[in-house]
Nucleic acid binder design. Structure first.
Lengths: 253, 253
DNA sequence: CGGAACATTGACCCATGTCAAGTGTCGTGG
DNA sequence: CCACGACACTTGACATGGGTCAATGTTCCG
């Protein structure tokens, strides 16, 4: 989940080459880049837009989503300050990027990026590694969407956000969720109501606190983790059906 | 982000430049590689194994899966002749690769591969393509696991197999499924029974034929496609609940 | 023949999506 | 300042889709 986003952070370093000199050049380039502001619900880009720039989120938050043929909205990830979006796009964007809070972004022309990458021969191998990382991240996303109960998904979501927050030097237990319950539902594949009920459920069990609807405090991270992992000690968290399943098919291969 | 990724794949083609000679070299290298045989249910490698080799499937089929903390098995993909497996793992394998039919594989030592790709850009490019295919497939799986009915998932699965078969010069409408119903269930996130019922359902509607349990003939590919896409004309395929949903939340942003 | 593995089908029921109603909370305009 | 609407969140009641259990059929192999 947040997995998907974190990998984006690293790409530019890879695309540009890993040596310190070009990294510096790259950071300087970003600092000079034009700053764009997008208000809540505004789009950074939409599916089909020509890919003129790559963006780095400075403040705010962005949801990356795709609308499926039947109108379903599938959010594929969220980008927070430090994350890059629109990277590597070639011709036109394949998804939509929508601000979920007032957001500021640095705009990097793709032509510049391409010039840099054409000069450094090491890039080929680094790209391979970048792809491998992407693949691993996307697979993680698949696992979160396996047959998992709402409480497992939400617990995993909160922990991913927590980890993310910790990596950025912020509080691991207390944070604001920038996205709405609907967004979380569209991300985890749940209805708004189920997301809401699950939050209530976690709160009732004393695992989290919700001073405001979008401010979360993780009270018992360990238990949340065991729920997210679907561990034996937390079986109550699963629908009965899956409980039995876990017993019947312990391991295979 | 999947965006970012699928695009990155193309960069090497730009940076690199393809010549016929190295292609020959690459194929020759593979042809000289040691041939390994794995019988049905044997493992090519398992999670945690050191990544000594990359493999290319010559004949047979391999399931790539991971066992989650609660014992759930999630198949993340199948590899057929021509596919590479073991790519992108660094140090040790992150998943299990199990033959689902008698299988022969070419074993390519990663050290050799790395040497070659340092000298010959085309090899790196080939590996990109392989990885990119993996990534695209995995990304599709993410969307498949959104809120989609069994019939949509199964229809999509059959069509993906069909497309794959066509690309390899085989029949697009008639083929053998090498995997069991359980495997399909673990791939699509459905129970065996539901998979079975869905096959029956499709057969009853005349969309497919099943001479043997694992031999499939696609009778009406177009209709299957519209089912897989969840298109309006095929709404009967969705649970009523999702039908309403599609109407209520047509598009957002 | 017998046993194992896989596939199919029916019956049941619970978890989750849907509908509906009520409760904040915010922003705008009078 | 309040009134109002828009929007997000919560909670309850209900329906149902798909997982589970159980029984049977089919294929394969020793």
């Amino acid at each position: 989940m947040a997995v998907a986003v974190s990998r984006l952070v690293r790409l530019p370093a890879i695309v540009v080459g890993i040596n310190a000199r070009s990294a510096v050049t790259f950071e300087q380039g970003i600092a000079r880049a034009w700053l764009r502001k997008v208000e809540t619900k505004g789009h950074v880009f939409t599916e089909g837009d020509p890919t003129t720039h790559v963006y780095r989120v400075e403040t705010g938050a962005v949801a990356l989503y795709k609308v499926l043929a039947d109108g379903q909205r599938q959010i594929v990830g969220f980008a927070y300050p430090g994350d890059f979006i629109g990277l590597g796009a070639h011709g036109e964007h394949l998804m939509n990027a929508q601000a979920i809070k007032p957001t500021r972004l640095r705009c990097l022309p793709v032509a510049t990026l391409r010039q840099l990458s054409a000069r450094d021969p090491l890039i080929g191998f680094k790209l391979y590694e970048a792809l491998a990382r992407d693949l691993a991240a996307t697979r993680d996303l698949v696992f979160t969407k396996g047959r998992r109960s709402p409480i497992e998904r939400v617990a995993g979501f909160l922990l991913a956000f927590s980890r993310r927050n910790g990596e950025n030097g912020h509080d691991r237990r207390c944070f604001d969720l920038p996205m709405t319950r609907t967004d979380i539902g569209d991300f985890l594949g749940l209805s708004v109501e189920t997301v809401s009920r699950t939050f209530t459920n976690l709160r009732m069990h004393g695992l989290i606190e919700l001073p405001c609807t979008n401010h979360v405090k993780l009270v018992d991270i360990e238990q949340l983790q065991s729920i997210a992992d679907g561990e034996e000690g937390a079986l109550w968290t699963k629908p009965m059906s899956l409980r039995r399943l876990a017993c019947r098919r312990p391991r295979r291969g």
